[in-house]
Each structure stands twice: as structure tokens, then as C-alpha cells.
């Protein structure tokens, strides 16, 4: 019997998710033993035409990372959807829109102009007698499931090797989880936090600080030190590597299943902790949170209720 076929693909992403697969280390050899990797542009020499040639539904699982921000990514996502029985949105960008999703605070034309100035590349690009058709920008960045149907999600920026391994095991094992599942626990990170015991029972914050402003205590709850840690809002499963590195959680694992809008919910919980009942004083306490959108929607703007900036 032939081994199940697996594909990996990247869309608008940084490559971190690909690193994760490599970070499986020796275990990647077990993966290779168990499956046939039929498509993995970052590591293996297969072309799109190879995928086109496959029978529809012949790939067991396609892991797609990255958000969708241009026509080529959409095209590849749709192609893999046809060829694969199961599609996994792999990593924060595919699941929630991710960092590239913050582009939804601007119109893509403005972004292109800001980056390239008047020298912006055109769709048809000619040079030395050659002609190249560039992918067209979508009007907005989208998470994978807004473009194609997705069966599972693996959260994280990037997902940790451990939950990636667990996802592979779960999907290739005998009894896959119900469709639509996020393949990580459904509690918030505090559950797993090594500093959990040090959070005071009644924590209110008189002054929010930014990580560069203080030398954080290595043992104590970061929120209790005034650092904006989004652990209470964020799905667990990562085993708190940032907190172990003395940095606050920024929320890459996204919300639990009970929250519709990560940013609004996180804002609610955080602002509620401001230790004052006076308008001006509250403003002062919350002032260090200089960029609420970037802080609370860092990984999830395209899948937030609004999806991005409102326009006229």
C-alpha cells in the first residue's frame, strides 16, 4: 500500500512555518518514512505542473501556511484544495491572517506606493525582451478559510514543532478530530504558564510598561509587572516559550473558540485592569498602549469582526 501523500505550501508568509517543519529535527525522518511528500517548494524540487498532473483528491493532507494576498496565492490554494482531501491552515497567517494581515489597515495601492514610490512594478513587466506577468494584489489580505474550505487549523507564529507533530499524528492516525478543529487546547495560555502562581488574585494595573522599559523579573507574572502579556487571551499549546524567554505573550495562537474577535476581547480584558475610575487617570494608565490595533490585532486583523480598517 502506498504511503499517504502530503503537500506543504506557503503563501503570504515569512518562512517561519517552513522552519517549524525542519525543526521537527530527527522526527522529520519519521515523517518522511510515514508519508510521501509530493510538493514542498521551499525544500523540494516539484513544480506547479506536477501538482496539476495529480488526480483530484490524491493528496491526503495539504499544509498551507501564509495569508492570501494575491492572485497567485489564491490560485495555488484553490489548486491544492482540489488535489487534497484535507487542507490544514498552518500557522497564524493562514489561520487568522497573521502579520501580513495588518496590511488591511491600508489600501493595497497606498501600500505599494509607500514601498515602491513611483517605480511600482506593473502587472505586465517587460525587460530585455522578456515579459513577465506578476500576480495581482487582492484588495485585502485574507485568511485561508475565507478563500477555500479548510478542515483544520494549526495555530502559532510559527506553530511549535510539538503541536505540528501532534497535528501530523492526529491527522494521519486512525481517528481524525472533527472538522473545523483548531489543533491545540481550547484554554488560554495561563493554564500552562510557569508563572501562573505568581499572579496576584486581585491584579489591577496602575502603569503599563513596554518590554524595553524594564528589566523584567524572571519569575513573576509579566502582567503583574505591568507588561502587556496576552497570555490570558491566547489559546495555549505553545508551552509558553516567550514567557520562558522573559517576554510577554503577543497572542500568536489566537483566541479560544469562545471568542469571536481576539482584538476586541483582549482589549476588554486588558483595559478592565486599569486601576482607576477617573477618566483622565484611566487615559494616562492606558496611554502606553500606543497602537491598540497593532497590539491586539497583531495576528488576527483579517479574521476580526471588522476585517480591517473601515472606509467611507
Amino acid at each position: 500500500m502506498s504511503k499517504p501523500k502530503v503537500a506543504f505550501y506557503w503563501c503570504a508568509s515569512c518562512g517561519g512555518c517552513e522552519e517549524t517543519v525542519l525543526d521537527l529535527a530527527e522526527a522529520v525522518l519519521d515523517v518522511v518514512k510515514a508519508v510521501d511528500i509530493v510538493f514542498w517548494p521551499v525544500a523540494m524540487d516539484f513544480k506547479e505542473s506536477d501538482v496539476q498532473a495529480m488526480e483530484d483528491g490524491s493528496i491526503a493532507v495539504a499544509f498551507i501556511n501564509g495569508a492570501i494576498c494575491n492572485s497567485h496565492q489564491r490560485h495555488m490554494a484553490e489548486l491544492l484544495r482540489r488535489k487534497a482531501q484535507t487542507v490544514v491552515a498552518f500557522g497564524a497567517c493562514a489561520q487568522l491572517g497573521g502579520i501580513p494581515g495588518l496590511a488591511n489597515m491600508n489600501h493595497h495601492k497606498d501600500l505599494v506606493e509607500a514601498i515602491y514610490g513611483s517605480d511600482a512594478p506593473q502587472e505586465i513587466w517587460k525587460s530585455n525582451g522578456y515579459e513577465l506577468t506578476l500576480p495581482r494584489f487582492a484588495d485585502k489580505v485574507q485568511a485561508l478559510d475565507r478563500v477555500i474550505a479548510v478542515e483544520y487549523y494549526v495555530p502559532g507564529c510559527p506553530p511549535t514543532p510539538k503541536i505540528t507533530q501532534q497535528a501530523l499524528d492526529a491527522l494521519l492516525g486512525g481517528s481524525p478530530p472533527p472538522k473545523g478543529t483548531v489543533l491545540a487546547p481550547d484554554q488560554a495560555l495561563c493554564e500552562d504558564c510557569p508563572r501562573r502562581e505568581t499572579r496576584p488574585e486581585k491584579l489591577l494595573i496602575k502603569e503599563f510598561k513596554r518590554p524595553h522599559e524594564i528589566v523584567a523579573d524572571q519569575e513573576k507574572c509579566l502582567l503583574a509587572q505591568g507588561l502587556l502579556c496576552l497570555g490570558p487571551e491566547t489559546r495555549s499549546g505553545c508551552e509558553a516559550p516567550c514567557i520562558k524567554g522573559n517576554m510577554p505573550c503577543t497572542g500568536c495562537f489566537g483566541p479560544t473558540s469562545r471568542v469571536r474577535d481576539f482584538g476586541a476581547k483582549a482589549l476588554s480584558a486588558v483595559a478592565s485592569l486599569a486601576d482607576s475610575n477617573e477618566e483622565l487617570d484611566i487615559e494616562r494608565i492606558l496611554a502606553p498602549i500606543a497602537d491598540p490595533v497593532g497590539t491586539f490585532y497583531r495576528y488576527s486583523l483579517p479574521t476580526s469582526l471588522a476585517g480591517g480598517k473601515f472606509t467611507k
Binding site: 484554554q187 488560554a188 486581585k202 469562545r258 485592569l273
Partner: peptide, 28 residues
């Protein structure tokens, strides 16, 4: 509180003016 879902983060505890919310050291 949905016990299966609570992470024990304690954000809720200072929210209650009636001290109705407590944190169990046993169940966390």
C-alpha cells in the same frame, strides 16, 4: 464559569464588586 475552559488567569476576580468570584487554590 465554564470550568473546563477557564485557564485560571484571575482577570475576573477584581471585576466583581460583590466578591462573588473566588479563585480556588485547589482547582486553580
Amino acid at each position: 464559569v465554564l470550568e473546563e475552559d477557564c485557564s485560571g488567569c484571575r482577570t475576573c476576580i477584581p471585576m466583581c464588586p460583590f466578591s462573588a468570584i473566588t479563585f480556588s487554590e485547589e482547582t486553580k
